[in-house]
């Protein structure tokens, strides 16, 4: 993230500067094509305004974005969001999910890898030797790699992602990755035992439709594990007016709480087999970073809060453990099950 442009840089370099739009990279001065949407869970357009934000992390556009809460079902979503044709702009080549490697992130990569492996294997419990697993929105294949390295060697492990960069990066590691989206990609219906949607659902333009397609791919009794940012947390309460890390402007389009997740399950026609929260320091760290950056704090201080900073990640991991213990961990983990019994 060395290339990011921070407000603090700008105000120091040009005191009293007034620029058009929000701070952005020099090559991203053109406005994004935007589209206005209604609630994807219940269809209502009655909203409560929550936040105005900008791309604090990657500075990919001069636009500002409005996030709202549906007055009818409580879903938090981006009301005016970038059009689908702008995905290459808002997921730049240096986007972390395309490059989460040990080379870039060293120690943090190793810690996260072992933590995630444990979580992942818990989700795979009870799968037979011939199990088929699909990682929806697999990015550069981080979780697929974990399954390959730590899971049962006879499992058939596949991923799907719509990003060229991600698919290329994953295939280079010898992983099976389909290019496209689940709604249109020709995958065998009713054939998968387990689907993973880890940090995926919040990025989708229409989570309901995608989840319905995933359901069709699953065998009877098959499960989908969803991990996503939790809006029923203290960090959300404190920072929801602008800087909350989970907004990840403008890339997180739908954000869930346990209640809205249950509603989504009802609308898809799946059962909630498990619903819990898990610990993550990321939203805490990025909420603080965004706040500091936005209000012009010195760069050295802003940089203390990032994915590259083991100290802040460690502190907020401990801190979020307290919230986890109270039932409000930073991430939601939901297991939805297809009706019918497994073979």
């Amino acid at each position: 993230m060395a290339k990011t442009i921070q407000r603090s840089h700008l105000s120091k370099r040009y005191p009293g500067l007034s620029f058009v739009g929000v701070p952005h990279r020099p090559d991203c001065s053109e406005a994004l094509r935007m589209t206005t949407v209604d609630c994807h869970v219940c269809g209502s357009d009655n909203v409560e305004l929550l936040a105005v934000g900008e791309d604090f992390e990657y500075r990919t556009s001069p636009d500002s974005f409005l996030t709202v809460r549906c007055q009818d079902c409580g879903l938090v979503y981006m009301k005016h969001r970038p059009d689908m044709c702008e995905l290459d702009r808002i997921y730049p080549v240096d986007y972390h999910a395309f490059n989460f490697s040990s080379k870039q992130f060293g120690f943090i990569y190793k810690v996260r890898r072992s933590l995630e492996a444990k979580r992942l294997l818990r989700a795979c419990k009870g799968l037979g030797n011939d199990a088929k697993i699909l990682d929806v929105g697999c990015g550069d294949g981080f979780h697929l790699n974990l399954l390959r390295d730590f899971g049962n060697k006879s499992w058939q492990v596949e991923g799907i992602d719509m990003s060229d960069h991600a698919v290329r990066a994953g295939r280079e590691q010898g992983l099976t990755i389909h290019h496209g989206i689940v709604q249109t990609c020709e995958l065998e219906q009713g054939s998968y035992d387990l689907a993973l949607m880890i940090a995926t659902i919040e990025h989708l333009d229409d989570p309901l439709t995608v989840l319905k397609s995933v359901k069709k791919l699953l065998k009877p009794g098959g499960r989908v594990v969803i991990v996503t940012d939790n809006t029923d947390t203290l960090d959300f309460k404190l920072f929801h007016q602008r800087h909350w890390g989970g907004y990840h402007f403008p890339r997180h389009w739908s954000l869930f709480s346990p209640a809205t997740m249950r509603q989504l399950a009802v609308n898809v026609g799946m059962e909630v087999a498990e619903l819990s929260t898990i610990v993550s320091p990321v939203n805490w760290v990025y909420s603080i970073r965004n706040f500091l950056d936005d209000w012009g704090a010195p760069t050295w201080l802003v940089n203390r809060f990032s994915l590259n900073s083991p100290v802040s990640l460690a502190i907020f991991t401990l801190f979020d453990n307290v919230h986890q213990w109270l039932g409000h961990g930073a991430l939601l983990r939901v297991v939805l099950q297809n009706p019918g019994s497994p073979r």
Partner: peptide, 18 residues
């Protein structure tokens, strides 16, 4: 204000009043 600008989709064409 920036909230109305974002709602209408003209945030990229507005200047902050300092």
């Amino acid at each position: 204000n920036n909230r109305l600008a974002a709602a209408v989709g003209i945030g990229s064409q507005c200047r902050d009043v300092l």
